[in-house]
Simulated assay, not measured.
Amino acid sequence: MKICVISFDFWNYDEHIVTELRRKGIDANHINIGAYQHKNFPARVQNTISKIVLKRNLKNEYRQEMILDQLKKLGKQDQILVINPELIERKYHEVIKEYTRKYIAYLYDSLARCPAEHLFDLFDEIFSFDKNDAERYHFQQITNYNYLPEAELNKNPMFDMVYVASYDKRIQILFKLTKKLDTLGLSYYAKIVGKKAWKEHLNVDSRRTVFFTRRRLAHKDVPEFYGNGKVLLDLIRDNQSGLSFRIFEAMALKKKIITDNQTVKEYDFYNPNNILVLNDDMSNVEKSFFETAYQELDPEVYRKYTVEAWVENVFGLKS
Protein backbone atom coordinates (compact mmCIF):
# COMPACT_ATOMS: atom_id res chain seq x y z
CA MET A 1 0.00 0.00 0.00
CA LYS A 2 1.19 3.53 -0.84
CA ILE A 3 0.11 6.49 1.30
CA CYS A 4 1.16 10.13 1.05
CA VAL A 5 0.67 12.83 3.68
CA ILE A 6 0.64 16.46 2.51
CA SER A 7 0.85 19.21 5.11
CA PHE A 8 2.45 22.41 6.29
CA ASP A 9 4.31 20.70 9.12
CA PHE A 10 5.66 23.72 11.00
CA TRP A 11 5.90 21.96 14.40
CA ASN A 12 6.94 18.54 13.01
CA TYR A 13 3.92 16.68 14.37
CA ASP A 14 2.75 15.26 11.03
CA GLU A 15 5.99 13.40 10.44
CA HIS A 16 4.97 11.04 13.26
CA ILE A 17 2.05 9.85 11.12
CA VAL A 18 4.43 8.90 8.31
CA THR A 19 6.86 7.22 10.71
CA GLU A 20 4.04 5.10 12.15
CA LEU A 21 2.81 4.12 8.69
CA ARG A 22 6.32 3.01 7.74
CA ARG A 23 6.56 1.05 10.98
CA LYS A 24 3.50 -0.84 9.80
CA GLY A 25 5.27 -1.72 6.55
CA ILE A 26 3.48 0.81 4.36
CA ASP A 27 5.22 2.74 1.58
CA ALA A 28 4.57 6.17 3.11
CA ASN A 29 5.86 9.60 2.12
CA HIS A 30 5.46 13.11 3.47
CA ILE A 31 5.28 16.21 1.30
CA ASN A 32 5.93 19.04 3.73
CA ILE A 33 5.11 22.30 2.00
CA GLY A 34 6.36 24.18 5.06
CA ALA A 35 9.88 23.00 4.23
CA TYR A 36 10.00 24.94 0.96
CA GLN A 37 12.55 27.77 0.96
CA HIS A 38 13.49 30.37 -1.60
CA LYS A 39 16.47 29.22 -3.66
CA ASN A 40 18.45 32.39 -3.04
CA PHE A 41 18.26 36.02 -1.90
CA PRO A 42 17.15 37.44 -5.29
CA ALA A 43 14.21 34.99 -5.27
CA ARG A 44 13.23 36.26 -1.81
CA VAL A 45 13.38 39.87 -3.04
CA GLN A 46 11.33 38.99 -6.12
CA ASN A 47 8.64 37.42 -3.91
CA THR A 48 8.54 40.50 -1.66
CA ILE A 49 8.08 42.81 -4.63
CA SER A 50 5.42 40.53 -6.10
CA LYS A 51 3.43 40.54 -2.85
CA ILE A 52 3.54 44.34 -2.62
CA VAL A 53 3.00 45.27 -6.27
CA LEU A 54 0.97 42.37 -7.69
CA LYS A 55 -0.61 41.10 -4.43
CA ARG A 56 0.71 37.69 -5.47
CA ASN A 57 2.68 35.40 -3.16
CA LEU A 58 5.08 33.50 -5.42
CA LYS A 59 6.33 31.36 -2.54
CA ASN A 60 2.84 29.92 -2.00
CA GLU A 61 2.59 29.12 -5.70
CA TYR A 62 6.00 27.44 -5.74
CA ARG A 63 5.06 25.38 -2.68
CA GLN A 64 2.00 24.05 -4.44
CA GLU A 65 3.90 23.34 -7.62
CA MET A 66 6.37 21.43 -5.44
CA ILE A 67 3.53 19.12 -4.35
CA LEU A 68 2.74 18.23 -7.95
CA ASP A 69 6.42 17.74 -8.81
CA GLN A 70 6.88 15.32 -5.92
CA LEU A 71 3.69 13.41 -6.71
CA LYS A 72 4.92 12.92 -10.28
CA LYS A 73 7.99 11.21 -8.82
CA LEU A 74 6.05 9.18 -6.26
CA GLY A 75 3.36 8.04 -8.68
CA LYS A 76 -0.16 6.84 -7.96
CA GLN A 77 -1.09 6.52 -4.28
CA ASP A 78 -3.70 4.34 -2.60
CA GLN A 79 -4.53 7.13 -0.18
CA ILE A 80 -3.54 10.78 0.18
CA LEU A 81 -4.15 12.69 3.41
CA VAL A 82 -4.08 16.49 3.33
CA ILE A 83 -3.83 18.21 6.70
CA ASN A 84 -5.47 21.64 6.79
CA PRO A 85 -6.42 21.66 3.09
CA GLU A 86 -7.28 25.38 3.03
CA LEU A 87 -3.55 26.02 2.62
CA ILE A 88 -3.77 24.67 -0.94
CA GLU A 89 -5.76 26.25 -3.76
CA ARG A 90 -8.63 24.28 -5.24
CA LYS A 91 -7.03 23.98 -8.69
CA TYR A 92 -4.07 22.16 -7.11
CA HIS A 93 -6.36 19.90 -5.07
CA GLU A 94 -8.06 18.82 -8.28
CA VAL A 95 -4.75 17.69 -9.74
CA ILE A 96 -3.57 16.06 -6.50
CA LYS A 97 -6.78 14.03 -6.31
CA GLU A 98 -5.97 12.44 -9.68
CA TYR A 99 -3.01 10.71 -8.01
CA THR A 100 -5.08 8.66 -5.56
CA ARG A 101 -8.12 6.44 -5.26
CA LYS A 102 -8.98 7.87 -1.82
CA TYR A 103 -8.60 11.54 -0.93
CA ILE A 104 -8.78 12.41 2.80
CA ALA A 105 -8.69 15.68 4.72
CA TYR A 106 -7.86 16.29 8.37
CA LEU A 107 -8.87 19.65 9.79
CA TYR A 108 -6.51 20.49 12.62
CA ASP A 109 -8.14 23.86 13.19
CA SER A 110 -11.71 25.03 13.51
CA LEU A 111 -13.44 26.30 10.39
CA ALA A 112 -14.02 29.57 12.22
CA ARG A 113 -10.24 30.06 12.24
CA CYS A 114 -9.40 28.39 8.91
CA PRO A 115 -12.36 28.27 6.49
CA ALA A 116 -12.30 25.32 4.08
CA GLU A 117 -15.98 24.90 3.16
CA HIS A 118 -15.24 25.53 -0.53
CA LEU A 119 -13.19 22.31 -0.63
CA PHE A 120 -15.56 19.83 1.05
CA ASP A 121 -16.81 18.23 -2.19
CA LEU A 122 -13.29 17.21 -3.19
CA PHE A 123 -12.70 14.71 -0.40
CA ASP A 124 -13.88 11.14 0.09
CA GLU A 125 -13.58 11.53 3.86
CA ILE A 126 -13.10 14.52 6.15
CA PHE A 127 -11.86 14.22 9.72
CA SER A 128 -11.89 17.09 12.20
CA PHE A 129 -10.43 17.53 15.68
CA ASP A 130 -13.08 20.14 16.47
CA LYS A 131 -16.21 18.59 18.01
CA ASN A 132 -18.43 21.53 17.09
CA ASP A 133 -17.41 21.41 13.43
CA ALA A 134 -17.75 17.63 13.30
CA GLU A 135 -21.31 17.79 14.60
CA ARG A 136 -22.35 20.69 12.39
CA TYR A 137 -20.87 19.41 9.12
CA HIS A 138 -21.09 15.65 9.80
CA PHE A 139 -17.34 15.11 9.68
CA GLN A 140 -15.69 12.16 11.35
CA GLN A 141 -14.54 13.52 14.69
CA ILE A 142 -11.07 12.47 15.80
CA THR A 143 -8.65 13.90 18.31
CA ASN A 144 -4.99 14.66 17.81
CA TYR A 145 -2.71 11.85 18.92
CA ASN A 146 -0.15 10.83 21.49
CA TYR A 147 3.10 10.48 19.52
CA LEU A 148 5.53 10.15 22.45
CA PRO A 149 6.67 6.88 24.05
CA GLU A 150 5.12 6.28 27.46
CA ALA A 151 7.37 7.76 30.15
CA GLU A 152 8.11 6.96 33.76
CA LEU A 153 6.76 9.27 36.42
CA ASN A 154 9.18 12.14 37.10
CA LYS A 155 9.13 12.82 40.82
CA ASN A 156 11.60 15.73 40.87
CA PRO A 157 10.54 18.44 38.39
CA MET A 158 12.02 21.93 38.75
CA PHE A 159 8.76 23.92 38.52
CA ASP A 160 5.18 23.47 39.64
CA MET A 161 3.94 24.48 36.17
CA VAL A 162 5.48 24.89 32.71
CA TYR A 163 4.03 26.34 29.51
CA VAL A 164 5.18 26.98 25.95
CA ALA A 165 3.09 28.71 23.29
CA SER A 166 3.04 31.25 20.51
CA TYR A 167 2.70 34.94 21.31
CA ASP A 168 -1.01 35.81 21.08
CA LYS A 169 -4.02 36.81 23.18
CA ARG A 170 -3.63 33.75 25.41
CA ILE A 171 -0.90 35.63 27.25
CA GLN A 172 -3.62 37.58 29.07
CA ILE A 173 -4.95 34.34 30.57
CA LEU A 174 -1.42 33.21 31.36
CA PHE A 175 -0.72 36.32 33.42
CA LYS A 176 -4.05 35.96 35.21
CA LEU A 177 -3.06 32.42 36.16
CA THR A 178 0.52 33.24 37.18
CA LYS A 179 -0.84 35.95 39.48
CA LYS A 180 -2.93 33.25 41.15
CA LEU A 181 0.08 30.93 41.38
CA ASP A 182 2.06 33.73 43.01
CA THR A 183 -0.51 33.99 45.79
CA LEU A 184 -0.25 30.22 46.34
CA GLY A 185 3.54 30.30 46.48
CA LEU A 186 3.88 28.05 43.41
CA SER A 187 6.64 28.21 40.81
CA TYR A 188 6.35 28.32 37.02
CA TYR A 189 8.30 28.69 33.80
CA ALA A 190 6.61 29.89 30.60
CA LYS A 191 8.23 30.29 27.20
CA ILE A 192 6.39 32.61 24.80
CA VAL A 193 7.50 32.45 21.17
CA GLY A 194 6.87 34.85 18.30
CA LYS A 195 8.08 37.76 16.20
CA LYS A 196 6.33 40.23 18.51
CA ALA A 197 7.72 38.68 21.69
CA TRP A 198 10.55 41.23 21.85
CA LYS A 199 7.96 43.89 22.74
CA GLU A 200 7.48 42.32 26.15
CA HIS A 201 9.88 42.51 29.04
CA LEU A 202 11.46 39.50 30.70
CA ASN A 203 10.05 38.61 34.11
CA VAL A 204 12.56 36.55 36.06
CA ASP A 205 13.29 35.27 39.49
CA SER A 206 14.58 31.85 40.45
CA ARG A 207 11.09 30.30 40.75
CA ARG A 208 8.82 32.40 38.53
CA THR A 209 9.78 33.13 34.94
CA VAL A 210 7.91 34.21 31.82
CA PHE A 211 10.48 34.21 29.03
CA PHE A 212 9.84 35.91 25.68
CA THR A 213 11.80 34.82 22.64
CA ARG A 214 11.69 34.74 18.84
CA ARG A 215 13.28 31.28 18.79
CA ARG A 216 10.78 28.44 18.94
CA LEU A 217 11.30 25.31 20.98
CA ALA A 218 12.64 22.48 18.82
CA HIS A 219 10.17 19.61 18.56
CA LYS A 220 12.73 17.12 19.86
CA ASP A 221 13.19 19.24 23.00
CA VAL A 222 9.50 19.28 23.98
CA PRO A 223 9.61 16.22 26.29
CA GLU A 224 12.61 17.58 28.20
CA PHE A 225 10.97 21.00 28.55
CA TYR A 226 7.76 19.51 29.90
CA GLY A 227 9.73 17.16 32.12
CA ASN A 228 10.71 20.21 34.16
CA GLY A 229 7.13 20.75 35.37
CA LYS A 230 4.81 18.97 37.75
CA VAL A 231 1.89 20.33 35.75
CA LEU A 232 1.57 21.43 32.11
CA LEU A 233 -0.57 24.33 30.95
CA ASP A 234 -2.81 24.21 27.88
CA LEU A 235 -4.59 27.37 26.72
CA ILE A 236 -6.82 27.18 23.65
CA ARG A 237 -7.02 29.67 20.80
CA ASP A 238 -10.18 31.62 20.03
CA ASN A 239 -12.94 29.69 18.24
CA GLN A 240 -11.44 26.30 19.01
CA SER A 241 -12.93 23.32 20.81
CA GLY A 242 -10.56 20.56 19.66
CA LEU A 243 -7.90 19.13 21.95
CA SER A 244 -4.36 20.39 21.41
CA PHE A 245 -1.28 18.18 21.38
CA ARG A 246 -0.56 19.38 24.96
CA ILE A 247 -3.28 17.06 26.26
CA PHE A 248 -1.66 14.03 24.67
CA GLU A 249 1.90 15.01 25.51
CA ALA A 250 0.80 15.23 29.15
CA MET A 251 -0.77 11.79 28.80
CA ALA A 252 2.47 10.22 27.54
CA LEU A 253 4.67 12.02 30.07
CA LYS A 254 2.24 11.24 32.92
CA LYS A 255 1.88 14.87 33.81
CA LYS A 256 -1.09 16.67 35.25
CA ILE A 257 -2.47 19.44 33.08
CA ILE A 258 -4.35 22.70 33.54
CA THR A 259 -6.53 23.75 30.60
CA ASP A 260 -9.26 26.21 29.70
CA ASN A 261 -10.73 23.79 27.15
CA GLN A 262 -14.06 22.80 28.66
CA THR A 263 -14.64 19.98 26.14
CA VAL A 264 -11.92 17.85 27.73
CA LYS A 265 -14.49 16.80 30.33
CA GLU A 266 -16.38 14.89 27.62
CA TYR A 267 -13.57 12.37 26.98
CA ASP A 268 -13.09 9.00 28.62
CA PHE A 269 -9.57 9.85 29.82
CA TYR A 270 -10.80 12.85 31.82
CA ASN A 271 -9.93 12.57 35.49
CA PRO A 272 -10.28 15.69 37.69
CA ASN A 273 -7.31 14.49 39.69
CA ASN A 274 -5.14 14.79 36.54
CA ILE A 275 -6.88 17.56 34.62
CA LEU A 276 -7.91 20.91 36.05
CA VAL A 277 -10.36 22.84 33.86
CA LEU A 278 -10.03 26.52 34.67
CA ASN A 279 -12.82 28.75 35.88
CA ASP A 280 -12.83 32.23 34.38
CA ASP A 281 -11.81 33.76 37.70
CA MET A 282 -9.20 31.05 38.50
CA SER A 283 -11.04 30.35 41.75
CA ASN A 284 -10.65 26.58 41.35
CA VAL A 285 -6.84 26.72 41.17
CA GLU A 286 -5.74 25.24 44.47
CA LYS A 287 -2.39 24.12 45.81
CA SER A 288 -3.72 20.63 46.49
CA PHE A 289 -3.91 19.92 42.73
CA PHE A 290 -0.12 20.29 42.55
CA GLU A 291 0.48 18.17 45.63
CA THR A 292 -1.40 14.97 44.74
CA ALA A 293 0.09 12.26 42.52
CA TYR A 294 -0.81 11.65 38.88
CA GLN A 295 -3.22 8.73 38.41
CA GLU A 296 -2.28 6.52 35.46
CA LEU A 297 -4.82 5.70 32.73
CA ASP A 298 -6.27 2.32 31.91
CA PRO A 299 -4.02 0.82 29.16
CA GLU A 300 -6.95 0.40 26.74
CA VAL A 301 -7.95 4.04 27.13
CA TYR A 302 -4.33 5.12 26.74
CA ARG A 303 -3.92 3.20 23.46
CA LYS A 304 -7.03 4.80 21.91
CA TYR A 305 -5.15 8.10 21.71
CA THR A 306 -1.80 6.88 20.36
CA VAL A 307 -0.57 7.70 16.86
CA GLU A 308 -0.83 3.95 16.09
CA ALA A 309 -4.58 3.96 16.78
CA TRP A 310 -4.90 7.26 14.89
CA VAL A 311 -3.45 5.95 11.62
CA GLU A 312 -5.50 2.74 11.92
CA ASN A 313 -8.64 4.85 12.20
CA VAL A 314 -7.93 7.44 9.50
CA PHE A 315 -6.53 5.03 6.89
CA GLY A 316 -8.76 2.06 7.76
CA LEU A 317 -5.85 -0.19 8.70
CA LYS A 318 -6.02 -3.35 10.76
CA SER A 319 -3.87 -3.47 13.90
Rank of each mutant, 00 (worst) to 15 (best):
M1H: 08
V5T: 13
D9A: 08
F10N: 10
H16M: 01
I17R: 06
N29V: 00
H30G: 06
I31S: 01
N32T: 04
Y36V: 12
P42V: 15
P42T: 14
L54R: 14
R56F: 14
K59S: 13
K73I: 13
K76S: 13
D78H: 10
K97D: 01
Y103F: 14
R113S: 11
H118W: 10
F129E: 08
A134D: 05
H138T: 13
H138F: 07
Q141W: 12
N144H: 12
P149Q: 10
A151W: 04
A151C: 09
V162I: 13
Y163A: 01
A165N: 06
K179D: 10
Y188G: 02
A190M: 04
V193S: 03
K199G: 11
H201N: 10
S206K: 14
R215D: 11
V222L: 07
V222S: 01
V222Q: 07
P223G: 09
G227V: 06
D234E: 15
S241L: 07
R246S: 08
E249M: 01
E249I: 04
K255V: 05
I257N: 00
E266W: 00
E266A: 14
F269Y: 13
I275T: 12
L276C: 07
D281P: 07
N284L: 11
K287C: 00
A293K: 13
E308C: 12
A309K: 14
W310C: 02
